[in-house]
Simulated assay, not measured.
Amino acid sequence: MRSSTIVRAAGAAATVVLSVVGLAALLPYSASAAGDVPSTSSVLAPDMPQAIAEPGAPPVPAGWIVSPGTKSGTPTLDSVVGVSAPHLTHTAVVRGTRATYQWMLDGRPVSGETDPTTVPGPEALGRRLTLDIAFTAPGYAPRAGTFHFGVVALRAVPAGWVSASPRVDGPARFGRALTVRGPVLTHTAIASGATVHYRWFVDGVAAPGATGPTWTPNQAGDLVVGVTVAKPGWKPLAFTLRLGWII
């Protein structure tokens, strides 16, 4: 795909502020199905360093970029995400080619976030996280693209923190106490501050005061107990135990 460039005059030279290139031109190898390939970026973010090039200068040659880097991490709160270092040819290195980065939330640059890795904070929750990357070299226009990481979510309590799932012994009978046994938490879960919570429901309605592992049914209906393993700031791990009709 042909590239287009907008330049701003600066004496004898000009500063390239926008370079639009096709994905095929950005990557000289066929890895577009791998999920780690940046898509075309139409605008270089304001915080991204810009190369100096003569008006009409060609973009950094596609053949200089063996790989733009590989994505890693899951876009969850307080987790590290990013891309590995790019693989450039010897010619690219000799000619001073370098990669510059700008993290974006919902298409807007995050001030100061210009490293290849980042840790999403509370302000990123529920927003779309992307990373703009531009390859620059003296005398060439930038060749740019975007890595897409998805919407930032809460980190979830892992299922591996539970070594034994919760269970209830015996049928649901009116006036007979029932006790949830478990879940059994691992040492890691306990050390991380995870806690277990219970809630009993009859016909889909929370039973008043029934928030412990033991409860005595005092009304007829379909009995369910919800068990969650929670950690502040994380998405809880939930279990649903269906005990049937109270007899």
Score class of each variant (00 low, 15 high):
T97D: 00
H90I: 01
P59F: 13
R181T: 13
R8D: 04
G209D: 12
L27M: 01
G56L: 02
S67Y: 06
V17D: 10
A85Q: 13
H197Y: 05
G126H: 04
H90N: 14
A9C: 00
P38N: 09
P109E: 00
T195M: 05
V110G: 03
V227L: 00
A159Y: 05
A34W: 15
G145E: 09
H148L: 06
G126V: 09
L223A: 03
A13I: 12
L27V: 05
G226S: 03
L125E: 07
T146W: 00
P116F: 01
M48D: 03
A34K: 04
D106W: 10
V202R: 15
E123M: 10
D36G: 15
V205Y: 03
P120C: 01
G221C: 00
V110M: 05
Y29N: 10
G121L: 10
V7Q: 06
G221P: 13
A34I: 09
R155L: 15
G69T: 03
T216G: 06
D78N: 14
S32A: 07
P59S: 01
Q102I: 02
L243M: 07
G69Y: 08
D169L: 03
I52P: 01
A14E: 00
I52V: 14
D222I: 12
A10P: 06
I65H: 14
T70N: 14
A53H: 11
L223R: 13
G204M: 15
G244R: 08
R2P: 02
T15L: 14
P142C: 15
V21L: 08
N218T: 14
V205A: 12
S42N: 13
V152Y: 08
L129I: 09
T5M: 15
T5E: 11
G160Y: 07
R98N: 11
A207N: 11
D169S: 12
Y101D: 01
G82K: 12
V229G: 13
V202K: 04
T70P: 01
L223E: 03
T100D: 11
V43F: 12
T136G: 04
